[in-house]
């Protein structure tokens, strides 16, 4: 059982705070680190991987400090986000070099390449690889010593659906086998499909933590904003405000738009078309006005 603990960790670069007083524990199984781009996910992963020192706080692996301690890499496998590798090597040479640096040999390299299904291209230079192929060879290099902990920074970027499914299966297996797997992503669906446990990071802060149902609920329970155009905005507004699922209405008479704030998502989506039909009002346009991931996340932070 291997656990990475992040204890009251902050990290700043000059005046910019990238990670702000985060405390979390990543244990066995698959954990998804979810957050919009620039939220501090990579900063967190770099600290867990020993490539960045926390400005304050401690990052430990089973109680052992990770920063400036190369022995932790016996237990950690890292799949960085950056593309750069030793492009002048073939895939096989690259994975073999990684195995040798762990004191292992050709067998371990062969096994890792088989795991990611890259044997067919292993004798080609990495410089000729597609993004998905690179991603898989990076994966093989991280798996070569069968680490207890696997850290992956945006591993699904640039993968086609089949490769994505294959990698998800692989990570699921590793999680089921009791390994600690942490991957970052800015796509909720990706995290939802794979991670039993989700940690949400927004603007450097730890916004939420739990299983995907809890996170999903947090995200759907927030107030939703809609912009509606109809044949009679005023009548629609007066009918809607009577229902507890709406919290606020604003009539924009100049542009002919009705702004609605709904607090009960499920009830409101059912209410709106019913009310319109009952009152003989035609809906021309119903559009959510704040569905961007950033606005969803920023709600979580405020909550």
């Amino acid at each position: 059982m291997t656990t990475i603990r992040i204890d009251s960790v902050s990290r700043w670069f000059g005046n910019v705070v990238a990670v702000n007083d985060v405390t979390m524990a990543i244990g066995p199984g698959v954990t998804g680190l979810l957050g919009p781009n620039g939220a501090g996910k990579s900063t967190l992963i770099n600290m867990m991987a020993g490539f960045l020192s926390p400005s304050t706080g401690a990052v430990t692996l089973d109680g052992v400090r990770i920063w400036r301690n190369e022995q932790v890499y016996k237990q950690i496998g890292l799949v960085p986000e950056r593309e750069a590798m030793y492009d002048f090597l073939t895939g096989r040479e690259f994975v073999l070099a990684n195995a040798e640096l762990h004191g292992l040999g050709a067998d371990a390299a062969r096994k890792a390449l088989a795991t990611v299904e890259m044997e067919y291209a292993q004798n080609r230079r990495i410089s000729t690889y597609s993004k998905g192929m690179r991603q898989r060879v990076k994966m093989a290099s991280a798996l070569v010593h069968e680490p207890d902990v696997l850290l992956l920074d945006e591993p699904f970027n640039g993968m086609d659906p089949r490769q994505r499914m294959h990698l998800m299966d692989l990570l699921r297996q590793m999680g089921a086998a009791g390994r600690t797997v942490l991957f970052s992503s800015h796509i909720l669906e990706e995290v939802e499909q794979l991670a039993a446990h989700i940690e949400v990071i927004v603007a450097g802060r730890h916004a939420a933590s739990g299983d995907f149902r809890k996170i999903r609920r947090l995200m759907t329970d927030r107030p939703h904003h809609y912009a509606v155009r109809s044949s009679d905005d005023r009548a629609l507004a007066s009918a809607l405000i009577a229902d507890p699922s709406t919290a606020g209405l604003e009539l924009d008479r100049r542009d002919g738009i009705l702004h609605i704030q709904a607090v009960d998502f499920a009830r409101f989506t059912e209410l709106l078309p019913r009310v319109a039909r009952d009152h003989g009002i035609r809906l021309y346009e119903v559009s959510p006005s704040d569905e961007s991931l950033e606005s969803v996340f920023s709600y979580l932070v405020a909550a």
Binding site: F51, E70, Y73, R82, M85, Y86, A97, L101
Partner: peptide, 15 residues
Amino acid sequence: DDSSIVYLLAKPVPR
């Protein structure tokens, strides 16, 4: 420069 040195450094090899 291109940070490929990560692959060397993420190993239990003394610096």
